[in-house]
């Protein structure tokens, strides 16, 4: 059971210094085990900061974050991160990158080979196992990064605009692929994005954040609509034209617009 509990968390950069800056103020959020949440919000509202605190890459100034009941004190393989700039190891082949996290938990040779074969097939990247990242396209690199995080077998997956650097076409393919991968291997996911479509399409719930200082404006439920309207049985383009989808998208958009307008 890998639920994330964010309990009255604040983040103050330069706390105690001459110019403290409140990036996150009193955020309360509970992400259930195997729930997929998207986080949207205007630039600078603290999405990355919040995610980095869950990852243990940033300390918490006030409050507490617990994952699977244990307070977060630092980074660990139970909370793998997919970074916007992929962050693959350039000196490792695709195979070595994918199994990086598996080696941390002492997976056997057979287990690792199996995972490489499995993920490369799933991502339609057969035959690239021995290539280096610089020999791959951006979309392929990000698929490897996602495979690396999944293969680590974390309870929680944290993704910070993982498709932000991709072109629109590749992005759509990746979104469908992510749905497929997470269906076969559901995890607790926190997914940051700037795309409202992407947020609504992927998530069980969409968290809309506001800024000055960073806070949660509203949490919108998507899962019940998705189930009722059977989104997952149709291709992404068709889903995005359904009234149920456009309605939710409009709702998120209005909230977001409100946040952006707040200080323009």
């Amino acid at each position: 059971m890998s639920e994330i509990v964010i309990d009255k968390v604040s983040k103050i950069f330069g706390d105690g210094g001459a110019k403290p800056f409140v990036a996150i103020d009193g955020v309360d959020l509970r992400v259930e085990d195997r729930e997929f949440i998207s986080v949207v919000g205007p630039s600078g509202c603290g999405k990355t900061t919040l995610m980095r605190m869950v990852a243990g890459l940033e300390t918490v100034s006030r409050g507490e974050i617990r994952v699977a009941g244990k307070p977060v004190t630092g980074p660990g393989p139970d909370r793998a991160v997919v970074f916007q700039q992929f962050a693959l190891f350039p000196w490792k082949t695709v195979r070595e990158n994918i199994v990086f996290g598996m080696r941390s938990r002492g997976a056997s040779r057979e287990e690792r080979d199996e995972a490489v074969t499995y993920y490369l097939r799933l991502m339609k990247m057969e035959g690239t196992a021995d290539k280096y990242p610089h020999q791959l396209s951006g979309g392929m690199q990000q698929r490897v990064a996602i495979a690396r995080s999944y293969a680590t077998d974390p309870g929680v997956l944290l993704m910070d605009e993982p498709f932000g650097a991709l072109d629109a076409q590749t992005r759509t393919i990746m979104q469908e692929e992510l749905v497929r991968v997470s269906k076969g291997n559901p995890r607790t996911v926190m997914f940051i994005t700037h795309s409202v479509e992407e947020a609504v399409y992927l998530a069980d719930r969409v968290v809309v954040m506001g800024r000055n200082p960073g806070h949660i404006r509203e949490v919108i439920d998507v899962a019940s609509t998705r189930q009722a309207e059977r989104w997952s049985e149709e291709p992404i383009d068709d889903v995005m034209e359904k009234p149920s989808f456009t309605h939710l998208r409009g709702q998120v958009w209005r909230l977001l617009r409100e946040q952006m307008g707040a200080d323009v």
Partner: peptide, 25 residues
């Protein structure tokens, strides 16, 4: 820094971070 972080969030020990990130980079 992001490569060090990528290693840490995938469970690398301090020794592995040194051997597999610091040295090659």
């Amino acid at each position: 820094k992001h490569l060090i972080e990528a290693a840490l969030v995938h469970g690398a020990s301090r020794g592995r971070v040194i051997r597999e990130v610091y040295l090659p980079d």
